[in-house]
Amino acid sequence: MPTFQKSLEACLPDLWRYAYSLSFDKAQADDLVQDCAERALRKRQLWDPSRPLKPWLMTILLNIHRNTRRRSTFLRLVPVDDAPATTAPATTEARMELADTARAIQMLPPEQRDALLLVVIGGLSYKEAAETLDIPTGTLMSRIGRARRNLRHMTAAEPISSFDGKSK
């Protein structure tokens, strides 16, 4: 059976991707993951070994992120040049599309963004993501549904009036 430390380290790349997708800032993602790993190691007794480790780590990461997010409430818009992609897409068009998506994801209501990215970037199952967010799976699904509809409208230049920011 892998040690706690090994299991934790195996989760780090996904945690980092998720942290980066939340913060859009690589240094901040480093700090988030570092902080999360340290807390997890200190509090490893709180983890129930019969359950998967990653959702538990994601919960810690999200808590840290939300606490910092609450302190900087203004919206950060990332200039096209700083858009995260490091493997530069071949065409200008593809680069613009990625920058569009980057902007759109940041404009989503946080609860929709958290839900969608936990699944798509964090690599969690729906059940694990719902546990991480402490919401019923049905609520998770409706947040993912709204996130996808909003992304679709924002990236396809469709009318913003259909933007769906309801909280449930």
Binding site: S21, P84, A85, P89, L98, T101, L117
Partner: peptide, 12 residues
């Protein structure tokens, strides 16, 4: 696109 925005190789 989301996958491309946050590349796995960079995370590692």
């Amino acid at each position: 696109r989301l996958d491309a925005l946050f590349p796995r190789s960079e995370a590692a």
